[in-house]
Computed example of a mutant assay.
Amino acid sequence: MPNALISTAPDFSQPIAVLKHCHDRIRKQLETLQNLLDHLPQHGNDAQAQQAAHSIMRYFNQAAPHHHADEEVDLLPMLSVTAIGEDAAVLQKLMPEIMAEHQQMDGLWHTLNLQLAPIADGATATPAGQLSPQDVQQFSAVYSAHMEKEETWIAPMAKRLFSAQQMQQLGSAMQQRRGIPA
């Protein structure tokens, strides 16, 4: 009997739910990033700060690129061949924006990753000055607006338009990308 007290991730038979779950994890990492920014001036680069930096870096260096590839390589191209009429018009407007936002977030992440590395490695020289509040705010704002756009427009469109076979194809591609056996 499954334990109802333990929250589990959806499986790849529900690829849109997996993408939403990724967004929820991104939101948690953005919250941790903000918490780290608040933590450093008071506590310095202690074990908690190092652990938080490691967690953030692990997510955005490993899981986030898979998530972006899910959208760029599979979800959006599949939608572009399926959508017609108003859906196609909405998609034609949003696809370039989403792709540009992915590039913008990748650039912002590169900057933050360089700032987080010394914190994760336990550097003691002015750790509070290593993490830019402006960079954290910009990264969080761009990511949050981006996820809102996808959850408002892209996910509902895919749920509405994709057949069971297309959902299975998307889920299989996502699972394979992560090296998870079928």
Rank of each mutant, 00 (worst) to 15 (best):
M1I: 15
M1T: 15
M1K: 12
L5E: 08
I6S: 12
D11E: 03
S13F: 00
P15A: 04
I16H: 00
A17Q: 10
K20M: 14
H21M: 07
H23Q: 04
Q29G: 10
L30A: 07
L33H: 08
Q34F: 10
N35P: 05
L36N: 09
D38N: 12
H39S: 09
P41W: 14
Q42A: 11
H43S: 12
A47K: 12
Q50Y: 01
A52W: 14
A52G: 06
H54D: 05
H54G: 01
S55N: 13
Y59S: 04
N61K: 11
N61L: 11
A63Q: 10
A63G: 02
H66W: 06
H67W: 05
D70M: 09
E71M: 12
D74E: 02
L75C: 03
L76E: 09
L76N: 10
A83F: 03
I84R: 02
G85K: 00
D87I: 00
A89E: 15
A89F: 08
V90K: 09
Q92T: 05
P96M: 06
E97T: 09
M99S: 07
M99Y: 12
M99K: 07
E101D: 13
E101G: 03
D106K: 11
H110D: 07
H110V: 06
T111D: 12
L112F: 02
L114T: 13
A117M: 08
I119R: 14
D121L: 05
D121T: 04
A123D: 12
A125N: 06
P127E: 10
A128M: 02
A128C: 05
G129E: 13
Q130T: 06
Q130F: 05
L131K: 08
S132T: 00
P133Y: 03
Q134P: 02
Q137A: 15
Q138N: 02
S140G: 09
V142K: 03
S144F: 07
M147A: 15
K149H: 13
E150G: 06
E151W: 03
E151F: 05
A155K: 00
R160F: 07
R160M: 07
A164R: 12
M167K: 08
Q168M: 01
Q169C: 08
Q169T: 13
L170A: 06
R178V: 10
G179S: 05
I180T: 10
P181D: 13
P181T: 14
A182N: 13
A182F: 11
